[in-house]
Design a protein around this nucleic acid. Structure first.
Lengths: 250, 250
DNA sequence: AATTCAAGGTGTAAAACATACACATTATAT
DNA sequence: ATATAATGTGTATGTTTTACACCTTGAATT
């Protein structure tokens, strides 16, 4: 009548069938190497860029790879992803969010490895690559053809994720300097979404959301009339963001 | 100069420092038990319900637990989640989507276990629980106070995920019978979002999206004027869903 | 058969929002 | 002084969302 996995039944005891030795239970589980892979986006010369490295593996010689590492024992996955970022970019205060797990049994040629993909956004100017080992550098998104492992699939998923996400939350600011012009902000959205937007309507939209702080400074060293510079006022955003109910299937 | 994790360096060879023995490499990784946990939602008596089981563990005696299992070797995580669903509910064609990984080092009392949470939606009427072992049954969402492991946190995250998701994609139909009245659909949205909606506007909204198929039947055994029954026309939805650009922070 | 009940079904006016669109301004470079 | 190239702004139109009230229908009750 009872139908329970054998491994669990093995650790049942007299206590109404409850499992007492949880350590033994966990040790009986199959275990899998876990990695984190970071899709690190930057924005430069009006293009979305992604930070890649040459693969370590003979098998993937000359292919590009996301920045990743295995998760240490007792390391939370978010922390592992932050660690990868800090090691490679020297930045600690980076936007980072988990996207999803990739678990095809054959995604790694050396055996089963499950990876958790993270999407990260940072300002290319604000950081120095810690090392350029393995030709770590920035690539235009559309120049990337194939990659090691299933990293192209991961990149595609994370890019789609970003396109959706950037329309719902003010993430884009992480890709820009602290002070930016509205033109830069618009270029960013146009590049990420792959569209062109009306300048007047774009401005109206962002001003109406009322979290751009006019800091009274202007662009410098531009060969034309300099634009005003703004800061993203996070507190104001948090206060004003509206609680939104709107059923809308796209 | 070069800074590489020691384990990787160990498998480098003469080939320009590239790693040849990928199996050995993967075996050198720390590995972790992986589980999937399913938040299985149903809708009954105008309430959102979730399917839970009593915890197996002495430590969590009398606490409720999500349905989960460890991932088998070479089993993709989605498949593991489907397996859990099929074993418990006997249903194979269930809506299922990965939400995210939970990885706090101490989330499992028996040692490190990483879990990938899945959200599942099914129609309570369409299935029979395969077994009622461990008091498997449906709970009103708001009756759930504390749970085993970090399952309350997982449930909360999945519920928020559902609230957002249901406004962007026509998932709700998975919780209803094939044929449903607009009132049932509205009750569903009201229950999940925790709001009341205007009936006329709700109808207008769904009719304008044009994927409800009027099947010419009516509700039966209701103590009042019966409403029309509709089906969700998935093909029509796929054809008509609009490609949508709309920056809107909430 | 008539009445009551309870939900079904519908339309319109006002407000909010999104879109399309053009011209004067200003700093720089020549 | 002039040309250039981008900044900055407003309005009219169409679309979408919201708010809101009455008649219809079938079942249950008298």
């Amino acid at each position: 009548m009872k139908k329970e996995p054998a491994v669990i039944t093995a650790y049942r005891n007299e206590n109404g069938g409850l499992i007492k030795d949880v350590n033994k239970l966990v040790k009986s589980y199959p275990s899998v190497p876990i990695t984190v892979d970071c899709v690190i986006f930057g924005f430069e010369e009006n293009e979305l860029k992604v930070l890649l490295i040459r693969s370590d593996l003979e098998l993937y010689r000359d292919k590009w790879s996301l920045l990743g590492d295995f998760a240490d024992d007792n390391e939370e996955l978010d922390d592992a992803a932050y660690r990868v970022l800090a090691e490679r970019t020297g930045m600690n205060d980076v936007y980072l969010e988990q996207v999803r797990a990739f678990s095809k049994p054959n995604r790694h040629p050396g055996g089963r490895v499950i990876t958790i993909a993270y999407c990260s956004l940072l300002n290319i100017q604000h950081h120095e690559l810690q090392t350029t080992d393995n030709e770590l550098h920035w690539h235009s998104l559309n120049s990337i053809k194939d990659m090691a492992f299933d990293h192209k699939e991961i990149l595609d998923v994370c890019y789609s994720w970003l396109q959706k996400r950037i329309q719902e939350h003010p993430l884009g600011f992480n890709l820009l300097p602290d002070k930016f012009s509205l033109r830069e902000l618009q270029n960013l959205y146009e590049a990420i979404l792959g569209v062109t937007l009306d300048r007047r309507n774009f401005r109206k939209k962002f001003f109406s959301m009322d979290f751009l702080e006019d800091i009274g400074e202007y662009e410098q060293d531009v060969p034309h009339r300099p634009g005003k510079l703004y800061k993203f006022d996070f507190d104001k955003y948090e206060k004003n963001k509206r609680k939104w109910i709107g059923i809308d299937f796209s």
